[in-house]
Amino acid sequence: MLKILKYSFYDLLRSKWTLIYFLFFLLITQGLLYITGDEAKTIVGLLNVVVILCPLIATVFGTVNFYNSREFTELLLAQPLKRRDIFIGQYLGMTLSLSIGYFLGVLIPFVIHSITYTVDYSVLSILLFVGVFLTFIFSALSFLISLITDNKIKGFGLSILTWLLLALVYDGMQLFLLSMLDNYPLEKISLVMTFLNPIDLSRVMLMLKLDMSALLGYTGAVFNKFFGSSFGYAISLSALLIWTVIPVYFINRISMKKDF
């Protein structure tokens, strides 16, 4: 597995994708720090970018990369290797190189910032963490979708649709549902819905850590009320972990049964 991980990792590190990802976050972070001059505000601003864009880029990239490395995959399949190592190795190589691009892109401006100002690394580390999680989750989802869908265009469409649904449509749907169901236990529904969306989860998790109740929104407030901030934090973290493990589990399962 390590050999394959290494090949995929270096392959992507050399490709311009990782670099673009890195530069993008570097500029955004540096820009926000410069404009606001305030690290807490920068983190909140970044959060809104991170929860939308990390999933988007991981989705686009996961799909494109999967179909592009199809030849590599077929070559590997005929070699004395475990299937699991071939697929999980490629997935990890890809998602790690993206994560590193993101991680350094955000971290470096803060490190520079910390020379003259104080930086709260505990909050920053959560932001970094959340972005890496989202990168892992959405590249796994798109990898999984591509694995199931042999048709490139269809696979790409489905992946983007998944992103669109979770990143943009979901919130609207949730509001709509809550306004429709006046008499039901709204809080529980909204709680469940938060767990079902890794993007919502990430947002809530960071808001809890930032202790910004004004920014929690309805779902966040409910979350806070039910679990309190530290338990809520732990529970959202576990939920994100589950969100990462499940698609990877299915990548493994489906790749074991697929004909090439």
Partner: peptide, 19 residues
């Protein structure tokens, strides 16, 4: 199993390599 493939030299019909 996968180790047994160490004993096989295989030439695929359509050569698909990382281009």
């Amino acid at each position: 199993e996968w180790q047994y493939k160490n004993d096989i030299s295989y030439l695929p019909q359509i050569a698909r390599f990382p281009e």
